[in-house]
């Protein structure tokens, strides 16, 4: 990703707005953008989702492969999660090998889903020591107007929850719905104009500082955390964010459960 020049004017504008507790697009500090979630929209994927948050749009697709289980875990299948942000999604994204930014995106989302235990890897075993399912979740950005993390995480869990294991195509039995027992949800906060806000846009990311990502499971258990970019935050600031994340993930989980 090319690092764009950060206009001083933008930074000072964001600070001025923060003093008045306002945001560049008129939202409240903890207010998310309008959210649209669809599932099963890609005909070639075994599970899929499209998430739109304002002008940020992402797709998630689930594919399955048959793998040989690892020798130390002969009864387990695998989960792989990768994120790709290609030049289609914005003028600062470049082609070539995966950038550190997109690798971080994929890994943070992966940890949230994996560590929540929502996918029972034991259930992915077909023949112990010989054959198991590998679930591959591919996250793909269509339009990046900030906060790809939350969009990817949400699209990812929705795609998994609507995935069918293609056993017939691989001649290992009948197709069945992938079992996803929990709904991990990520919430991301960026420091903009000196204080943390929820669901930053690209302009807020550009003129802002560090970011914090929190993934919470069904019982508000913490499954992944990540602090990104340069910046220092206090314990009090983190507590405030965590309290907000608890509230917000509950609402988002309800939306996902009702799909």
């Amino acid at each position: 990703m090319t690092i764009p020049i950060v206009p001083k004017l933008l930074r000072s504008h964001l600070s001025d707005l923060a003093e008045r507790d306002a945001r560049i697009d008129g939202r409240g500090r903890w207010e998310g953008r309008e959210l649209e979630v669809q599932h099963s929209i890609l005909p070639r994927a075994e599970g899929s989702a499209r998430v739109r948050m304002g002008d940020t749009i992402v797709l998630a697709g689930v594919k399955f492969q048959i793998m040989t289980p690892y020798p130390d875990r002969p009864n387990q299948g695998g989960l792989m999660c990768s994120a790709e942000v290609r030049p289609v999604a914005g003028r600062n994204w470049e082609s070539g090998p995966p950038s550190p930014e997109s690798i971080e995106l994929g890994r943070v989302v992966d940890r949230g889903i994996r560590e929540s235990g929502c996918i029972d890897v034991d259930s992915l075993c077909i023949i112990p020591g010989e054959k198991a399912w590998q679930v591959i979740l591919d996250l793909f950005a269509i339009s990046d107007d900030g906060n790809l993390f939350d969009a990817f995480a949400l699209a990812g869990i929705v795609a998994l929850r609507n995935a069918t294991v293609p056993a017939e195509r691989f001649e290992v039995g009948e197709d069945y719905q992938l079992s996803v027992s929990k709904t991990p949800i990520m919430c991301s906060y960026h420091r903009v104009g000196g204080r943390f806000v929820f669901d930053a846009t690209a302009r807020e990311e550009l003129g802002g500082d560090e970011r914090i990502h929190i993934t919470l499971g069904d019982d508000n258990n913490v499954h992944s955390l990540q602090k990104g970019l340069k910046g220092i935050f206090s314990a009090d600031e983190f507590t405030e964010i965590m309290d907000n994340a608890i509230e917000r993930t509950e609402k988002l989980r309800k939306i996902v459960d009702e799909l």
Partner: peptide, 17 residues
């Protein structure tokens, strides 16, 4: 011009790259 197939665009997953 860059033409690319997303990994989930085909029956067997398309490896990125």
């Amino acid at each position: 011009v860059a033409y690319n197939m997303a990994p989930f665009s085909t029956t067997d997953r398309m490896r990125p790259g």
